[in-house]
Design a protein around this nucleic acid. Structure first.
Ligand code: MN
Ligand code: MN
Ligand code: MN
Ligand code: MN
Lengths: 221, 221
DNA sequence: TCATGAATTTTGATGATTCAAAATAAATGA
DNA sequence: TCATTTATTTTGAATCATCAAAATTCATGA
């Protein structure tokens, strides 16, 4: 049997949470449940079923971790999600702020065949509109580590490479201030007291909060 | 929160069955169940629920019929299905034989917004790749009645306008014999004993069975 | 060590969708 | 008319995904 829509969502959520976790560390049920917007008991029940199916390793009161087959499946869902996002922006001309919700549904409905066509048509892109890496047809690819606007060097040219927040409002803010991936900027100053980061984009200055600054990943050029 | 995927499929199936039915005549449960590949009792249960929701008129032991709201919803599903088919052929370059199954899934996953973009991009098409009419955003449009290869005049130029069978094998046969919608042909002869219809396409002759011939709708030019 | 509080699991329940098989109604045809 | 066949409905049960609330386990800090 093929993973249901629900199972696909669980696997993808686990994968995305694991990426932000040290290797081997288990993902607690509370976090998983919160990520999916379900009651904790619901997540527990599902994890027992997925463990039964060999897709996760589940340790009661400790948490879960994807097995190799589970990770492969999860990566394929993530691959579909991100290819669809890129397609909606590049081909359908949709805003990068609205493609996430659309992809959230379509990722479960497209066939392998259609995904391959999309991949073809886009020239096998490596990243989606938000700079998130697109897993290959064989599964996850190694993640490159990037600095964010809190950790990158001051007064040094950096290029925005990724925005790790899918919220439409946040994305629109980034777009309005021309801070999308590809854009070259500099961190002028960080003000811990004001909880703010002052960024220079050409001649313009933009001030963003530290919480938001941590969501903007950059590469030193 | 209404129509679930399942309900959408039921409504669409009823609408498509109704089209081939005299007005006012009820659709029997057996036919509906067969069309959806479910047990008869399952269809009965669902019809009671849909009647409760005001989407169908259900008469025990007689059959069902869509109400106005039910028909509107069903037409919107059909609209999505057919726009998606046209999109997959025109934009994604997929074969007209394989788009039906793909659309069967996508019709439940695309947003109103995306469907409007697709409609735009295609220039508001009136028919899908099989010649099936695409309902407008407000619901069903009046159906034009066409002759088929069994009822059209002999030795008279006609244009194929529609193929009323979504089976991949049949569609591939039509494609291989260049009988897709838009093609101009003539019925040379009908042979009841042989259960065959001989069609002339330019200088070529194609023989098809009567069952298949009834699936090819044509317009006298 | 142990009482507390937080996190997690268990329990009991619900809604949606489905089936197989039994019961019933309708249609048919002598 | 009435027995037989066919279609439909009813019944009882299963699966999946979910919740709220109760029970349990774990971690903590006095
Ligand atoms: Mn999803
Ligand atoms: Mn993305
Ligand atoms: Mn469908
Ligand atoms: Mn079609």
């Amino acid at each position: 049997m093929f993973p249901s829509r629900t199972v696909e969502n669980y696997l993808k959520a686990i994968l995305q949470a694991e990426i932000a976790l040290p290797p081997e560390q288990l993902l607690p049920m509370g976090q998983l449940a919160a990520a999916l917007g379900v009651a904790p008991g619901t997540a527990t029940t599902m994890m027992k079923a997925l463990a039964e199916a060999g897709l996760v390793r589940y340790e009661p009161y400790a948490g879960v971790r994807l097995t190799a087959p589970g990770e492969k499946l999860a990566a394929l869902v993530l691959r579909r999600h991100r290819l669809i996002e890129q397609f909606l922006v590049q081909v359908m001309g949709m805003s990068w702020a609205e493609v996430h919700d659309e992809a959230e549904q379509l990722e479960h409905a497209v066939s392998e065949r259609l995904i391959e066509r999309i991949d073809d048509m886009l020239g096998r892109p490596q990243v989606d509109p938000h700079g998130d890496p697109i897993p290959g047809p064989e599964g996850m690819v190694a993640q490159r580590e990037y600095a964010n606007l809190l950790s990158c060097p001051l007064k040094t040219p950096v290029v925005v490479v990724r925005v790790t927040d899918q919220g439409p409002d946040f994305l629109r803010f980034i777009e309005d201030n021309e801070l999308k991936p590809g854009r070259s900027i500099e961190v002028e100053h960080r003000d811990a007291a004001a909880d703010a980061v002052i960024v220079r984009r050409d001649a313009h200055r933009v001030t963003i909060g530290m919480r938001a600054a941590s969501k903007l990943l950059v590469e030193v050029v």
